[in-house]
Design a protein around this nucleic acid. Sequence first.
DNA 1: CTACACCATAGACGCCGACTATGCTTGTAT
DNA 2: ATACAAGCATAGTCGGCGTCTATGGTGTAG
Lengths: 299, 299
Amino acid sequence: MNLRDLRYFVALADTGHFGKAAERSFVSQPTLSAQIKKLENYLGVQLIERQPRRVTLTEMGARILPLARRMLQESDEIVALARNEHDPLSGKLKVALIPTIGPYLLPLVMRKLRKQLPRLKLMLYEYQTQPLLDKLRAGDIELGILALPVPLDGLEARELYQEPFTVAVPNNSPLAKKSSVKVDDLGGETLLLLEDGHCLRDQALDVCGRIEARESEDYRATSLETLRQMVAAGLGVTLLPELATRGPFGSGQGLTVKHFSRPVPSRTVGAVWRKSSARGDAVHAICGVIEATMKEVKK
Amino acid sequence: MNLRDLRYFVALADTGHFGKAAERSFVSQPTLSAQIKKLENYLGVQLIERQPRRVTLTEMGARILPLARRMLQESDEIVALARNEHDPLSGKLKVALIPTIGPYLLPLVMRKLRKQLPRLKLMLYEYQTQPLLDKLRAGDIELGILALPVPLDGLEARELYQEPFTVAVPNNSPLAKKSSVKVDDLGGETLLLLEDGHCLRDQALDVCGRIEARESEDYRATSLETLRQMVAAGLGVTLLPELATRGPFGSGQGLTVKHFSRPVPSRTVGAVWRKSSARGDAVHAICGVIEATMKEVKK
DNA sequence: CTACACCATAGACGCCGACTATGCTTGTAT
DNA sequence: ATACAAGCATAGTCGGCGTCTATGGTGTAG
């Protein structure tokens, strides 16, 4: 069966006239005639009664007509659905961010994202790097924002911005008063870190690898906020990504945030998506907005 | 858009594998691949994400999938509807009979019709000849049972049986006692007739045309039953079709039914339908049953 | 009775969808 | 690390279906 035949049939039922139905269907009369006959043949039922001056439906034709109409309407619905949302920058898009980026980056970019990509409905999730990559590969999410590099198998990545690390120290620490802090100055300090699974933990260890800072064995923070509390309590120092020290998250309450002097250690924040993803346009649009926002923020 | 493409799409969504979907659809893998691509192109939307080891739906694909399924299901419904009732001897069939035949013929044939054509749902109507022919031509009914001949424009007819006329006389009439009655014996009698529009009226006038029976001016019966009452009341005599004198409609209650001696006047009862009707098979099946029944009855 | 309206049939043609063969990319195994 | 296997895309070819124009056949109207 063919949708085209159903269209012919409906046109014929509407006009009651082969010639008019053919005209309305933009085909010749013999074409429509033959296709109707073929449809009848296929169904094994006569749909149309060819009366001399008029064409009417048989009982079976009358029963099939509303079904045919519904099918055609649904076919139009599919086309409309696809064509209307044909815009690649519309529809739902599932985005995941790692915990050390999400809460600090989103406030900066969400308003701009909503404004510049108003038809894109972002579904936001928060996963650590490994689960994020798993869900990305499984197709559960479309885009991940995390710290690069990560192993890319079938994935594509785009760097978004460099995020310097800062060091958070208790107010009473000697470091708090230094005008400039170098990585080497952290020698001998107790280093507070996030629990396993957070990439920031590995990045911090990497930054401090060469020096003699010892990690506290007793505490493994579950979030940057608890980590901040621990520093303020004087239990040690920690590295914080710069975005986590902005706005309401800055110094204060027993804690001082110091920027490193050059060479400033940093991490690369980027976007990751499946190479096969159908949402490449939307992904790059989002990346563009984030990049632009971060360039402004740096100024 | 093509239903075939939707079938391919659904198969692909079900299997998540081009090769398997092609196999399930009984086509080669490149064929299915190309048609899916064409469908995506037509809709202007990517439906499928081709991941290396697996095929998944895009968000738009997931939204379209249920619509596609519904369409295919409805297409199957149409086919099932047509194929199941593909039997020409099934479905509704609207049949009209004239008032002087219906009430007397139907009791004789209905049981046999129901038995031999059990899947045919007869919708019965009663109209006088002219309205019956009008409704037949208009397509409101499919089959008419009436007295032939009638003007056949685009109609087809089939004779079913000969129905002799009988004469109904009051018990106290001299005719009631005669062993045989000829048409000429009706000379001088008051002839009671149905009102205008009933063909039986014209047939009776035709039978009695040559003789000197005068029609009663005061009464025009609206049905054979009132006519019978009028005869029993001694107001005159009338012609009755034989079927209207059988079983519960015979002599009695002040009325005697006399058969004519040869040559017996009669009328031809037949079936009429549109030449273009799609229900020729059913019509002829019904005619066959009526014919057979009437042959048995005559014995 | 002739002319017209209207659907069906005939014959030709172009395009779509099908196939086989092969290429390309990715993941896997030795 | 290299070779193989899996899996979808591409290339090239072919047949059939849907389309057209021209014409036939039938019923209606003037």
